[in-house]
Design a protein around this nucleic acid. Sequence first.
DNA 1: GTCTATAAAGCGATAGAC
DNA 2: GTCTATCGCTTTATAGAC
Lengths: 200, 200
Amino acid sequence: MTEQQPRARRGRPGHDRAAVLAAAVALFIRKGYDATTIDDIAKSLGVTKSAVYHHVDSKEELLSAALAEALDELDATVAAATQADGPATERLHEAVRRSVEVLVAHQPAVTLLLRVHGNTATEVAALERRRRIDRALAGLVRDAVEERGLRGDLDPDVVSRLLFGMVNSLVEWYRPTGPVSGEQLAQALTALAFEGLDAR
Amino acid sequence: MTEQQPRARRGRPGHDRAAVLAAAVALFIRKGYDATTIDDIAKSLGVTKSAVYHHVDSKEELLSAALAEALDELDATVAAATQADGPATERLHEAVRRSVEVLVAHQPAVTLLLRVHGNTATEVAALERRRRIDRALAGLVRDAVEERGLRGDLDPDVVSRLLFGMVNSLVEWYRPTGPVSGEQLAQALTALAFEGLDAR
DNA sequence: GTCTATAAAGCGATAGAC
DNA sequence: GTCTATCGCTTTATAGAC
């Protein structure tokens, strides 16, 4: 996301690895990883398969790079929430808010992460990293319930699944270019989750 | 789901269409539709590819059957909530409760529906039916806000996405054989959504 | 950096025997 | 109801020219 536009040179496209990755991720999301062929990626860039293989070694490498981007961001979010001082309830609020920000800023990569099946070693490793993140967030919810910051009549593990299930569902519809800003979205989600939808 | 167990006959497995469908759906969920081969389905039943083709005409037909099951159930839920009498807020509560029930009772089929990409005509048609369902539920949320049954400071369309995004996320983790019953789950989800997580 | 050509393997689907 | 054998096509990936 740092640079783009291969500064159209007239004649040969002249793509680089980042351009191939971006094109691949867009197609992985639209068609699914397995249904996307190297030829699809090549055609979307206006080149042939061989040109794509000049920039990357394999199709799986493209998936791996996208998953690493998502996992690194989510790891940082969890680390911040786990290591910070203060009540667990406040740290949970912050973790939810930051998670929404990550999903908004890295929507393509996170979308792929949430759709991984575990068909290859790359995918299994990503699923394991994701499980660690989920466990850490569930621990935060438990702590918040124990310090009586959250209602105590609901199972903390179920609450954690529902809460972050709602957060993760954002990737299915939210687009930063739409009418809702990332901040509005985080506000609406935390309001729904912590205060509820009932009219006051 | 009406009958099962091909009443083990000793020797030839003797499968039927329902057994092939069940095996296929389980693999579609575990590996993804595109990554699942007819040979995978055959091997999971202990037969060869040709035996599978004796029961079904194509791989896509198996997906189509599962998607129809999910869509028929969700259509019925929406129809009940739309046509019932009474305040929209009460009908929304009921729609959420029934949606959870459908996801629990038809988890495999609904999981596939939520993962459809639109790569074939079958998938595009399923996505269109699903969009109609989502629109109807969003209309219910709007009506509930208008009659002041739900808080008015949040965008109804965003609320609808978040609420049913949370419901749909159930397919990613909930298993009827686990420690949480379907009723407990519906209770926890409606409590979170309408009352919120904050300690009273 | 991109091309043509091709190797090697996998996949959906069918034919015909038992 | 299941088998072996095979067709025809697609796909990942590589070799070598420009």
